[in-house]
Nucleic acid binder design. Structure first.
Lengths: 145, 145
DNA sequence: CTTAAATAGGACAATTTAGTCCGATTTAGA
DNA sequence: TCTAAATCGGACTAAATTGTCCTATTTAAG
């Protein structure tokens, strides 16, 4: 329901990297996967996607890893991450899977879902990495089981 | 994003069957799959699930098919259908996939998502089959591409 | 009673998504 | 310059979802 595993891991990775970046720490894939409880190699693949989409900076070689420029932490939100990984279906796709669903040629749920979609988009856009990553400093808030 | 193919087909089937039931017509799986543009055998499987969950009545044998009791058409909504097919993840599951996410042990998005989830549930619960199936009588509103 | 039309259900195949592995490349530091 | 630690990226495998096919059962009607 809702997000792919890839997006779940992508979001968790971004929150962790942001949290570390705010204290000037670069994270490598082992640390990230450990922190979020995800498979290392699969996480690596998702980090590549995030890098190609310029949501994180990757640094190769010894002492390398991933980081987010501090000034970007507040600008990046969950919508950016989900779009980078799963594409823009969240913005456009018909909830019933019709490829030509539009206000001219709507499915029976089109209008209702348009309103809900707006709420979903707003909620995701409003959730920025600064806010989310700061929560991690509370020991009650977790990224893994 | 969001619904499985199974739920998509299930919802479309239900809307079509409801539309036909309101004019006292029973539908068979070939008619349903044709009307919604879905694979016949897979649709048959989903109809079985809907039947087991008492969202439709199935009638075996010649002149059989599927129907919805008229008095139920207004009571059944999209939330019922999605839960019958995909289970209750839509009601409970953590958006980041954590199995122990709760207000006691929350993920960083828990609170924000709780509000969004309420909106999603409300939207789905509010979309009843009577309303949706009546839209089908407009030639502008479609269930297939 | 027989037949034809329908659902029920299980086994299987295809596709997509999730996850693994390994060699190539990059880079800091001894 | 060499080595160790890291990402990159492609090929592969595993699991889940989607889709197909076939047989059994049910039922209305001739």
């Amino acid at each position: 329901m809702f997000l792919s595993k890839a997006s779940e891991y992508g979001i968790k990775s971004m929150i962790f990297i942001a949290n570390q970046s705010l204290i000037n720490k670069r994270s490598n894939v082992n640390e990230i996967a450990e922190a979020i409880g995800s498979p290392v190699s699969y996480t690596a693949k998702i980090l590549q996607i995030l890098g190609r989409n310029n949501l994180i900076q990757s640094v190769r070689g010894a002492y390398g890893g991933y980081e987010i420029e501090k000034r970007n932490v507040k600008e990046i939100n969950l919508l950016d991450i989900v779009i980078a990984i799963d594409g823009d279906a969240i913005l456009n796709a018909c909830v019933l899977g019709l490829s030509h669903c539009s206000s001219d040629n709507p499915c029976p749920i089109h209008e209702k879902y348009a309103k809900l979609r707006e709420q979903i988009i707003m909620a995701f856009r409003h959730a920025d990495l600064k806010e989310l990553s700061q929560k991690l400093d509370s020991k009650f808030i977790t990224l893994k089981n």
